[in-house]
Design a protein around this nucleic acid. Structure first.
Lengths: 79, 79
DNA sequence: CCACATTTGTCCGTATGTATC
DNA sequence: AGATACATACGGACAAATGTG
């Protein structure tokens, strides 16, 4: 078993990319299908990523439109 | 379709029960099988609940042992 | 208005692995 | 060894919102 499961690895990677400026607030993430292809995982795994990132307020999901990145300043994190 | 999906409804319910004292910090949640029975959902839905609650640091999952509640004071929330 | 494609949303069942008791 | 319980991932089915023509 991997030390870090896919859904956590991908979540952390996305958060890092936003913090580094590679992904900017307001920007739309690739579609689920594209993320599946990119990370070589199933759609259900991407869904776990989204549930986690949404809980932390890192992303904003809009049915039919896409998934958008928020500003790191609004993320939920430890004090 | 329900205004609030199962995984959110159940997540919120658990958080409310901890805040109200019905569930105490350190306490073990019912098993996945029991939660499925209790809420009449599949195990995959309970998993979504756990992923969300873990992101918010409301629970602590320990493989083979169980899922334990944390103290509301340590939860991630909006300032 | 309608038809269609795209995209996200939700839920389920199953297979397999790993830790604990 | 066996039972229990959590962990991860996958694929399928259907719903709902959006945009385009």
């Amino acid at each position: 078993m991997p030390a870090v499961p896919d859904y956590l690895r991908i979540s952390n990677r996305i958060m890092t990319e936003v913090e580094s400026g590679k992904l900017k607030p307001g920007e739309k993430l690739p579609s689920i299908a594209q993320l599946c292809e990119l990370h070589q995982v199933g759609a259900s795994t991407i869904r776990q990523v989204f549930i986690r990132l949404e809980a932390l307020e890192v992303i904003n999901r809009r049915q039919g439109k896409g998934v958008f990145v928020t500003d790191p300043k609004t993320w939920l994190r430890k004090p």
